[in-house]
């Protein structure tokens, strides 16, 4: 886990916001600010994942994208929240994939052939990885030391572990792909909190106009990112 001072809670954020925008209280927005403040009291509640799945997801995403001196980690960036929100999109429900049968195994290079949508892959993969962790170490994945968590993820990635009918590698790649998406997509989708992923990379986000820098040969682009909703960092 990153040091707690690097993870501003919603409460701190909204308090700060209210402190500087007290006009709300005098202009008929009392209800709105109450709603924001009350929302800030509770951390994000997953809409799709169960409590046990949520603990797995938080631990696994942070191992894949750890907080370090290069930049923020998956928890700093709200990657698990991003993934939870994705589960309730057409993507999460597998509606962007060709999911008509028959389903038949084949060589890996012919691509994904399971009858599972992303949300089903998570449900199955998390349960199976947790039971593998219990079998190997006597504890759920989230309760293991970081080195043991890394060892399990490495085993999944390397294809050494099969999770029932699901190759460990398939589940790992799903998790890895969605973790990266959560770290680097626009915050409108729930991840990349405070544009931390983009700041780390030097990506200016939705600025999308570089006429002034096309032929600046060598120096770094000087402006920080802006999001679709207008957040800056």
């Amino acid at each position: 886990m990153p040091p707690s001072h690097l993870v501003p809670s919603r409460r701190t954020f909204v308090k700060g916001l209210l402190g500087t925008t007290s006009f709300w209280l005098f202009s008929g927005h009392q209800g709105w600010s109450d709603a924001l403040a009350s929302n800030a009291d509770s951390p994000y509640s997953p809409a799709y994942f169960t409590a046990a799945e949520w603990r797995f997801l938080q631990a696994a995403c942070e191992r894949i994208f750890p907080h370090d001196d290069v930049g923020p980690g998956a928890l700093d960036l709200a990657v698990p929240e991003f993934i939870d929100r994705q589960m309730n999109t057409s993507y999460g429900r597998g509606e962007d994939w060709f999911m008509a049968g028959p389903f038949q195994d084949g060589p890996a290079n012919l691509g994904y052939q399971l009858p599972l949508a992303p949300r089903d892959l998570y449900r199955h993969g998390i349960a199976a990885t947790d039971s593998y962790a219990r079998q190997q170490h006597g504890k759920a994945f989230a309760d293991l030391a970081a080195t043991d968590q890394v060892a399990i993820l490495t085993a999944l990635e390397g294809g050494a572990v099969t999770l029932g009918n699901v190759p460990g590698r398939t589940f790992f790649e799903q998790l890895r792909t969605n973790t990266m998406e959560g770290a680097f997509s626009d915050p409108i989708h729930g991840g990349n909190r405070h544009l931390g992923g983009w700041v780390m990379l030097g990506f200016p986000g939705a600025r999308a106009d570089f006429m002034d820098w096309v032929d600046q040969y060598g120096p770094a682009y000087p402006f920080g990112p802006v999001s679709i909703s207008g957040e800056t960092a």
């Binding site: 191992r63 894949i64 994208f65 750890p66 370090d68 290069v70 930049g71 890394v150 993820l153 990635e157 890895r176 973790t179 990266m180 998406e181 770290a183 680097f184 997509s185 992923g197 983009w198 780390m200 990379l201 030097g202 990506f203």
Partner: peptide, 27 residues
């Protein structure tokens, strides 16, 4: 090159694909 696409390339062949050392190569 957008960030999610860049995350797939990471630090190039042979660099870590995730975890320790991944972000350094990526950035």
């Amino acid at each position: 090159v957008k960030p999610i696409a860049a995350s797939g390339t990471g630090g190039g062949h042979g660099a870590p694909r995730w975890g320790e050392g991944y972000k350094k190569g990526l950035v």
